[in-house]
Computed example of a mutant assay.
Amino acid sequence: MMMAVRASRLFDGVDAKPVECPLVLVEDGRIVAVQSGGDPPDGAQVVDLGTATLLPGLIDSHVHLAFDASVDSVDRLAAADDDQVLATMRASARLALSAGITTVRDLGDRDYLSLKLRDETATDPTAGPRILAAGPPITTGNGHCWFLGGAITPGAGTIRAAVRAHAERGVDVIKLMATGGELTPGSASHLPQFTAADLRAAVDEAHRLNLPATAHAHGTQGIANAVAAGVDMIEHGTFMTADSVAADPTVIAAIARAGIPIGATIAQKPNPAYTPPPRMIQLIPLIVAVFQQIQAAGIPVICSSDAGIGPLKPIDALPYGPAMMAKHLGGTPAELLRSVTSEAARACGTADRKGRIAPGFDADLLAVDGDPLADLTALTAVHAVFREGVQVR
């Protein structure tokens, strides 16, 4: 049966000018028409959302469903068996969907558990978002997130073999740890973990297998290595040093020339009971200044969350991200909404089906109370959620 969804206004994922009094026609999980005003077809199921604003379901390009967003998420993951981890992941998937996040890209799980959950949500739209899964990230022996099971000895041959092994398991994207990270004891965010040649071998192998490759990279040399390797996206891109942050204009220019988007894992949900580590409090304003330079260079910046890693990063953090970006980096509401809809879909390689409200696209819809084109905090006032034409909230 055809469904006709009414609302007060609509942001289609691209156009800054909203559609007034929209009527979105949905059939078999896909959008078949979008019109302003008019009557629904005879026999259609009408869903009237009143004064709500419709927009595409949100896309979080960087999450970790296996982590539970606790203060000791790494230790808690290590102590849990696969059934317990899957239970956490299933609950997180449902929470993300209820927040209007209809697609997530899981960039690091344990033992490929996100692929199992991906298959579950593929057949049941009410179980969670569509999941793009990376499996365990490819890292070094004691490197960042080695405990997830993707550690290898550096070298072109071994990293190619690791990419092939991931592809054989059916991953959607290859995640490479180009530098260390804050989450892993003994790992240094500013230091590279692979050479540019190693990363190039990984990217070449991924592309040969028709898979995109994205690189976790904080320090300047690791970012430069990832750019030289031709990655499809850079995660974080903070330009951390041993004790501070220092943007490299030459590397920023190289990113801009290559047209590589950067996933700014800026979204966090307020949690008055939690205080971040002093190091991060010190670095945040410096990282903001770096991203101001990145934006000025014309590099696409995608708003994401890194959800799961700690108390400010629950799986439903993304809707808070655009308002945070507006506060720290500026930009119009339409630009910032694109960063969690159509531009996020482009960065994830799903721009043909996700991130827009237009004929032929999946009927992933978020309705919020208020007008996010005037006030981005309206993204957290969820009125209704649809995934592939099924109303899940």
Rank of each mutant, 00 (worst) to 15 (best):
Lys354Thr: 11
Asp15Met: 10
Met280Ser: 13
Thr238Lys: 09
Asp352Ala: 13
Ala256Lys: 07
Ile234Val: 10
Pro22Tyr: 06
Met1Val: 13
Pro18Gly: 00
Ile101Asn: 00
Cys303Ser: 03
Pro277Asn: 11
Asp60Phe: 04
Thr214Lys: 15
Arg346Gln: 11
Ala289Pro: 13
Pro277Glu: 00
Ala202Pro: 02
Gly298Val: 08
Gln84Cys: 08
Val74Glu: 10
Leu199Asn: 00
Ala351Met: 12
Ser98Thr: 10
Arg356Glu: 06
Ala246His: 13
Ala122Val: 09
Gly38Glu: 02
Leu373His: 03
Gly128Glu: 00
Asp109Val: 07
Ile138Phe: 10
His216Tyr: 01
Met177Arg: 03
Glu168Tyr: 15
Ile294Phe: 01
Asp352Leu: 10
Ala197Lys: 09
Gly155His: 07
Ala289Gln: 10
Arg9Thr: 05
Ile159Cys: 11
Ala79His: 14
Ala289Tyr: 01
Pro136Tyr: 04
Ala206His: 08
Asp42Ile: 14
Ala167Gly: 04
Ala4Cys: 13
Phe147Cys: 04
Asp111Phe: 03
Leu86Arg: 13
Ser187Glu: 09
Glu388Gln: 15
Leu55Asp: 03
Arg9Ala: 05
Gly43Ala: 08
Thr380Met: 07
Pro129Ala: 02
Asp198Ala: 07
Glu335Trp: 05
Ala151Thr: 02
Gly108Tyr: 04
Ala202Arg: 04
Leu211Ala: 07
Glu335Phe: 04
Thr275Leu: 14
His144Met: 06
Gly50His: 12
Leu65Tyr: 02
Ala99Arg: 03
Thr377Phe: 12
Leu25Lys: 03
Arg110Met: 11
Val163Glu: 10
Leu115Tyr: 07
Pro270Ser: 05
Leu199Thr: 00
Ile101Ser: 02
Met177Asp: 01
Gly310Thr: 04
Gly222Asp: 02
Ala247Glu: 03
Asp109Cys: 12
Thr139Trp: 06
Ile234Asp: 01
Tyr320Asn: 02
Leu25Gly: 09
Asn271His: 11
Ala307Lys: 10
Met3Arg: 14
Leu199Trp: 03
Pro18Lys: 04
Ala242Met: 15
Ala374Asp: 13
Asp75Thr: 04
Gly360Leu: 02
Pro300Val: 04
Ala156Trp: 07
Ser8Lys: 14
Lys313Gly: 04
Pro314Ala: 00
Ala87Phe: 09
Gln221Leu: 14
Ala79Thr: 10
Gly321Glu: 06
Gly321Asp: 08
Leu191Gly: 02
Val382Gly: 07
Arg105Gln: 12
Leu336Ser: 01
Leu191Lys: 13
Gln193Arg: 14
Asp375Ser: 09
Tyr320Ile: 05
His328Tyr: 15
Ala267Thr: 09
Met240Ser: 13
Leu336Phe: 02
Leu54Arg: 00
Pro300Asp: 11
Asp12Trp: 07
Ala229His: 05
Thr241Asp: 02
Ala289Lys: 02
Ala197Gln: 14
Leu376Val: 09
Met2Leu: 15
Ile294Gln: 08
Gln282Val: 15
Ile59Phe: 14
Leu23Met: 12
Leu107Glu: 00
Pro154Phe: 03
Ala4Ser: 14
Ala78Gln: 14
His218Trp: 14
Arg110Gln: 12
Ala7Ser: 09
Asp316Val: 05
Arg356Ala: 08
Ile262Met: 13
Val34Thr: 05
Glu343Thr: 14
Pro129Thr: 05
Leu373Cys: 06
Met233Pro: 15
Pro333Val: 10
His62Arg: 09
Leu77Val: 06
Pro311Leu: 05
Gly149His: 04
Val63Ile: 14
His207Gln: 10
Pro154Glu: 02
Pro285Trp: 07
Pro137His: 05
Leu286His: 13
Ala367Cys: 06
